[in-house]
Design a binder for these strands. Sequence first.
DNA 1: ATGACTGTAAAATACAGA
Length: 259
Amino acid sequence: MRIATWNVNSITARLPRLLAWLESSGTDVLCIQETKCADEAFPYAELRELGYEAAVNATGRWNGVAVISRVGLEDVVSGLPGGPDYDGGQEPRAISATCGGVRVWSVYVPNGREVGHDHYAYKLRWLEALRDAVAADAEGERPFAVLGDYNIAPTDDDVYDPAVFEGATHVTPAERAALGALRDLGLSDVVPRPLKYDHPYTYWDYRQLCFPKNRGMRIDLVYGNAPFVKAEQDAYVDREERKGKGASDHAPVVVDLDV
DNA sequence: ATGACTGTAAAATACAGA
C-alpha cells in the first residue's frame, strides 16, 4: 500500500496536478492539508472518476484537511477531539479514517505565527490535544500513523540554516517537545529519503528562489506506531512535484507499506 | 535545470503562510 501526505495549498488551484500525481504515483491513500475549499466545493466527482473516496473536514478560505483513499474509507472522525478553539471556534485541521486496515490521521498543525503570539499558544495546546487523541491508537496492534503538515522542524538538521530561524516558530524547544510527547506514546518519526541532495526537506518558500537553492525545511511528517514502522518498505519526498508552474510550496511525502 | 511568491475573498487590498 502506498500512503502519502501533501499540503496542496488549495485543492482547487492544485486539482490538475493532484489528479495527475495520484495516477502517476499510484498512491492508495493520501492525507491532504490546506484544501482552502468549502466542503460543497470539494472535487469529490473528479476524485471518484479516478476511483477515490474522500473524507473532508473543511470550511472555506483557510485550513481544511482530507483523507483520499481507493482502498476503503471507514470510521471517519472529523475534527480533533478536545481540540482548542481559536478566535471563538474550532478550525478544520484534523480528520481520521481507516483505509485498507491502516488507521491514518491527516493533520494541519497551527502555524504559530510568532513566539508569544496567541497563535503560538494555540499551536501548543492543539498539539497536546492531538497527543491525547491518538494515545490509544498509538499503542494498538493496528498500523497507525499521524501524517501531515506539523509546522515543526524536528531538529536543526531539518532546516537549511538554523541561524535564519533563531527566535522563530517551528524550531522552538516547546514545539519540539510536543513531538517528543508523541514519540513517548510509541510513535516514530518515519524519515523519508530525499530524492536529491542530503536533506529530506518537504517545504520550500515560494520566494527568493528557495527551491532552486534548496533552502527548505522538513515540516511535513509521518509519525507511525510500531506496526506501521514494521510494515514500512520505503519512504521518500517526491520533490519532482515541487517543480514548475502551478506547484504547491510543499512536496508530497510518500510511504510504502507491506500490508 | 528547479527560477525571482501564491492563494482566497473578509476582492481590487488584506491576510495568511512559515
